[in-house]
């Protein structure tokens, strides 16, 4: 740990040298210490905007003070770490997950919060279906770059977007390697049921133009003890969802698996692990597929 300590010292020194920026921080009621902490947070490879899992379940901002997000339950149960497992050997590309998601969130046309790709790793290898929800990364690049903290990591692992705060700069779209984020280029078409609900970050609707949206793991379903809309709609039982703390995942048929054992036994992996984003979505390899491969 000596190495890490010295790096921290170095960061502190650099931050002190960047004294000019500190005055801005001071103007906002933050001292140099906060700047140092903010810089060190990023450098330590932790989510830049993270919840404090040890304590109260409040969202903690970069200044160390609790953050409030209008219209949402900012305090969530910190005893859960939601996790999704996608079994590529079972997905047959029917896109029922996308449809269920569209229905659940009134997803505007042109967006696919869970999008099913036809992946082929090279020209010789076979192809397979690849559902891509938001990865809810623990080191989320989108939350890192958001200039206003509109997108943030909740301590149950979910990355949310506060559309009341989003300025529509689309930097998070630039940062996300998974293409999971969508911008409302125009006023989305509305339905009466959608507009009947008051806006909530846990629903991501009513939708509006000029802000970014994405898959949010259906927090309202989770509170009711239900699977996210996509997982419960999967007739191949390819989408599993659960809690890493309790080490359990379920599929739509209600079958129960040990998360760690499943990942270990089937050599689960995370998409683009090399980028260091630490997704909360694991994939099981498309081995011994139980469906015809995509004809592409």
């Amino acid at each position: 740990m000596a190495q890490r300590f010295s790096r921290r010292q170095f960061i502190k020194l650099s931050a002190l040298l960047a004294g000019g920026a500190a005055s801005i921080g001071a103007a906002r009621g933050q001292g140099l210490d906060d700047l140092v902490r903010a810089v060190a947070d990023v450098a330590d490879h932790r989510p830049a905007f993270r919840a404090d899992a040890q304590t109260t379940g409040e969202l903690i901002g970069p200044s160390g003070e609790p953050m409030s997000h209008a219209g949402t339950a900012a305090a969530v149960n910190g005893n859960h770490r939601w996790v999704m497992v996608i079994d590529l050997a079972k997905c047959d590309g029917c896109r029922e997950c996308t449809k269920a998601c569209d229905a659940m969130h009134y997803v505007p046309p042109g967006q696919e919060w869970i999008k099913v790709f036809e992946n082929r790793d090279d020209q010789v290898a076979g192809s397979y279906w690849f559902p891509r929800p938001c990865m809810q990364c623990d080191n989320a690049p989108c939350a890192k770059v958001c200039p206003v903290g509109a997108t943030f990591k909740r301590e149950d692992g979910i990355v949310l977007v506060n559309q009341d705060r989003c300025i529509g700069c689309r930097y998070c779209i630039a940062a996300c390697p998974y293409g999971a984020r969508y911008f409302n280029w125009s006023e989305p078409p509305h339905t009466a049921e959608e507009l009947a609900q008051p806006y909530s970050v846990e629903l991501n609707y009513p939708h509006r133009k000029g802000v970014v949206e994405k898959c949010i793991f259906c927090p309202t379903h989770l509170e009711e003890g239900k699977l996210p809309a996509c997982a419960s709609a999967c007739r191949m039982n390819a989408l599993l969802f659960g809690d890493q703390v309790e080490d359990v995942v379920f599929n739509a048929a209600g079958e129960l698996f040990s998360f760690s054992q499943l990942i270990r036994d089937k050599a689960g992996f995370r998409y683009m692990e090399e980028l260091g984003t630490e997704p909360r979505v694991w994939y099981l390899p498309p081995r011994d597929r139980v469906y015809p491969a995509p004809q592409s």
Binding site: A38, I167, G168
Partner: peptide
């Protein structure tokens, strides 16, 4: 280029130095 230019003050109200 912003989707919500009227929310520019958010950069001062909620600005994050990490961005």
């Amino acid at each position: 280029d912003m989707g919500h230019p009227e929310r520019l003050p958010n950069l001062l109200l909620y600005g994050r130095l990490q961005s």
